[in-house]
Design a protein around this nucleic acid. Sequence first.
DNA 1: CAAGAATCCTGTCAGC
DNA 2: TGCTGACAGGATTCTT
Length: 279
Amino acid sequence: MPELPEVETVMRGLQARLEGRTIARARLHRPDLRWPFPAGLVARLTGARVAGFRRRAKYILMRLDGGDSVLFHLGMSGRMLIGPAGANDIPLHEHLTLETGDGWRVGFVDPRRFGCVDLLPTAQEATHRLLAGLGPEPLDADFTPALLSAALAARRTPIKAALLDQGTVAGLGNIYVCEALFRAGISPLRLAQTVAGARAARLVPAIRATLAEAIAAGGSSLRDYVQPDGELGYFQHDWKVYGRAGTACERCPGPPGCAGVERIVQAGRSTFYCRRTQR
DNA sequence: CAAGAATCCTGTCAGC
DNA sequence: TGCTGACAGGATTCTT
């Protein structure tokens, strides 16, 4: 589920609870998620002070005093739950539990186990195997129409697939790609290399605005990014096309001119779009 | 090489 | 109410 805005919001929630605190206790409840947990993870976490956080694409990096970073990826179903420390029972599918010196508990829950956790020297974040190949951050100033069209110039795949490729631009997933293409008025079926010039000039701000609005919604709807049940980061969204097949497209007058939002399948994944306004 | 398919895993929901 | 099959927001790895 989590794409860039959700990951950003989860990270801010972790920041509020963990930054500057000491991890008094760390527990693993199984040996692996997508890959084995790194050797020495629990030992390194225990007693460590959390120096800060950053996000890169859909990865959360928790920096520890002493120069190591813990990398988290939430996969499809990963969640962070917080609550008071002390309870010894482990919620279903909670695989890693942290407890802070000031009495908070953070649990990493991931039923499908597509997520991952790694431990690396902070100085090597940029060259880590999972981070090295990532494209530009879409909210950074260097993500420009010129940069995007250069990245797309040789791509003979639909723009939908090219934007899902984390090497083109980092952090978009199926939902935000659909939403950004709708906002930009670009068909998901369009060949990636033809997204240049005016189309690239529309797409970059569309991606930025779609993500920024979602992050803002997360920040305003949750106090300290925590839901009442202790879940970090998730919030209600108002999609324009995602999951809305068969409903009216808000930009169109309706039938017979427009069939409304349609669902198609591209590379095995659902795409939602309006064929009248997205060209 | 690039692009599409298969794959990991569990939960949920629609339909019978 | 159970059962079955389709599907889910990711990203690597395998095939073509």
